[in-house]
Computed example of a mutant assay.
Amino acid sequence: MRHAIVAGNWKMHKTYAETHKLLDELIEKLPAGKEVEVIVAPTFTNLGSAVAHLEGTNIQVAAQNMHQAEGGAFTGEISAQMLKSVGVDIVILGHSERRQYFHETDAILADKVNTALRHDMRVIYCIGEELKDRESKQYLNVIFNQLKDGLFHLSKEQWKNIVIAYEPVWAIGTGMTASPDQAQEIHAFIRQEIERKYDKTVAENTSILYGGSVKASNAKEIFSKPDVDGGLIGGAALIADDFCTIVECC
């Protein structure tokens, strides 16, 4: 069901000790009684210990990526089964950094989604346009094609395990942020296209998050938009006070 979510993508930050220090700060400072699903995504090396550290709290743990194969000769990669074995059942797929630096295509990502769902995992699926796409007025086509090629092969039933994260590439790590109205335009478009492909029930039950330089200072205005259901947070997720303020805004 559609609900508010704030997820922190820690990227390649935080050692073991730093991870647990930040988790302790979040446990202490996160607002109590807030109806927001809170997720953190530490590095692979700290996933298992983070799950154990957060046992009994309302903070969930996600992986930042996984391989599409069940196993095999894929040096350095991590499978869905490995993630499940340490208690991780949420995975972020399709982040623009994976698409850009590791050349992950929509076809590869569709395979990853299939594997994750086969293992009863939830997927936070990232989509978003580059600056050139926005400047050339092609951004809606880009968003549609990423949806179509990555997710529109799924059944209605499978969508219960899909969360969309709209992250304009030009706003990730740049300090630039889509305006609340720009975010709402894309979120509404995504929901419209899901409804067009499936039905209104699937569209209305899908949580759509915004990511891209979300900060404590701008989260409230962005989250106030009717089709924005929370955020996938980068840099601000590494600072406990900022992340907790963002959760409070949702």
Rank of each mutant, 00 (worst) to 15 (best):
H67M: 06
Q64N: 07
E70Y: 06
L47T: 04
F74G: 00
I39F: 01
M66E: 07
I59C: 09
M82A: 07
N65R: 00
G72L: 00
A62I: 11
V40M: 04
H67V: 08
A63C: 14
L54Q: 08
I39G: 01
A63E: 05
Q64P: 05
A41Q: 11
T43P: 10
F74Q: 00
A50E: 09
A69T: 03
M82S: 08
S49L: 01
T57D: 07
H53L: 05
I78T: 14
T75S: 01
T43M: 09
Q64E: 14
G76R: 00
A62N: 10
N58F: 15
G56V: 03
T75Q: 05
H53Q: 12
P42G: 00
F44C: 07
M82Q: 13
I39P: 00
Q64A: 12
E77G: 01
T43A: 13
V51C: 09
A73H: 06
A73Y: 05
N58K: 14
T45A: 11
A80P: 08
A50G: 12
A73G: 01
F44N: 08
A73N: 15
G56L: 01
A50M: 06
I59T: 10
G72Y: 04
H67I: 04
V51S: 03
L54W: 05
N58M: 12
L54N: 07
A73I: 12
T43S: 14
A52C: 13
L47P: 02
Q81H: 04
H53R: 14
E37S: 08
G56H: 04
A80W: 02
M66R: 01
A52M: 12
V40A: 04
I39R: 06
A73F: 01
N65E: 15
Q64I: 13
F44I: 11
E37H: 07
I39L: 06
A62K: 09
T75M: 03
